[in-house]
C-alpha cells in the first residue's frame, strides 16, 4: 500500500486510487506482439511482392507472406474468441465522452504543456480516440485486408470467371490500399507513443503487463480479495 495517492481526474473530482494492475494479461500481450511482428513481416514481404524492394526473392516473399498471413489469421480467430469470452471486447466499444478533450489535447494542449486529459481505468485502458481508432482498424481495415487477401490467395478457385484478371486487379488494389492504411495506422500509433511519459513508458506495460491505472474502491477491494497476483507494488 505504498502508492495509494488519490489523483484528480481532469474535471477535478477524485474517483479512486492509482494502483499498479495487470492490465494486459499474457494472452493479450502475446496477441499484440505476434500481431505486430506478423504485420511487420507482412509489410516487408508485401512490399517485396509489390516490387518496392528486392531483398528477398519473389518466391520466398510469396511463401513467407502466405504462411504468416495464415498463421496470423489463426491467431486472430483465437483473439476474437478470447475477446468475447473475457469481455475484453468491451474495451473497444466507442464512447464519445471525452473524445473532444483528447482531440483538443493532441491539436493544442500537447504544445502548451498540458497533461493528457485521459486517465486509464482498469475497465477502460484506452482513451476515447484510441478506442475509436482501434475499433476502426478491427472492423474496417483488418476485415478489408483479410477478405481481399483470402480472395487473392484463392485466385486459383475463381480464375475461370469472365474478367478474372480484371477482378484480380481490383482485389489486389483493395488489398494493397488496406495494407498501406494499416501502415499509416502503425506510423501514427508508434508516433503517439512518444507523447506523454515517453515511448518506453508506453511500451513497458505491453511487455510486462502491469500499468498504473485508477481503481475504484470496489475494484481495488475485489482485486485484493480475489486476485492479489494482479496487483503489484509499483516501480516508480
Amino acid at each position: 500500500m505504498t502508492d495509494t495517492a488519490t489523483t484528480p481526474t481532469p474535471d477535478g473530482s477524485a474517483k479512486g486510487n492509482i494502483r499498479c494492475v495487470l492490465v494486459y494479461p499474457a494472452f493479450n500481450r502475446i496477441w499484440h506482439w505476434s500481431q505486430a511482428g506478423s504485420i511487420f513481416l507482412l509489410m516487408f514481404t508485401g512490399a517485396r511482392l509489390m516490387g518496392m524492394h528486392q531483398i528477398l526473392s519473389f518466391e520466398t516473399a510469396v511463401t513467407v507472406h502466405t504462411l504468416t498471413a495464415l498463421a496470423l489469421l489463426l491467431l486472430w480467430l483465437f483473439a476474437t474468441f478470447w475477446l468475447f469470452t473475457t469481455e475484453a471486447w468491451k474495451q473497444f466499444i466507442p464512447k464519445t465522452e471525452g473524445l473532444f478533450r483528447v482531440m483538443r489535447f493532441y491539436a493544442w494542449g500537447v504544445f502548451h504543456g498540458e497533461e493528457h486529459p485521459y486517465r486509464k481505468s482498469y475497465k477502460r485502458r484506452h482513451n476515447p480516440l484510441q478506442a475509436l481508432a482501434y475499433l476502426a482498424v478491427k472492423i474496417a481495415l483488418f476485415p478489408a485486408i483479410w477478405v481481399s487477401g483470402l480472395i487473392y490467395l484463392g485466385y486459383g478457385l475463381w480464375d475461370d470467371l469472365d474478367n478474372a484478371s480484371f477482378l484480380l486487379q481490383i482485389v489486389a488494389n483493395i488489398h494493397i490500399l488496406s495494407a498501406f492504411s494499416i501502415a499509416a495506422f502503425v506510423v501514427v500509433h508508434t508516433y503517439l507513443l512518444t507523447i506523454g511519459h515517453g515511448f518506453l513508458h508506453h511500451i513497458r506495460p505491453m511487455i510486462f503487463g502491469f500499468e498504473k491505472v485508477e481503481l475504484t474502491a470496489e475494484e481495488e477491494a475485489y482485486f485484493m480479495a480475489d486476485m492479489p497476483e494482479r496487483l503489484r507494488t509499483p516501480r516508480h
Partner: peptide, 10 residues
C-alpha cells in the same frame, strides 16, 4: 509490376 492505383493512394 508496380504499385497501381491502390499502391499509389496508399
Amino acid at each position: 509490376s508496380g504499385p497501381g492505383i491502390g499502391g499509389k493512394l496508399g
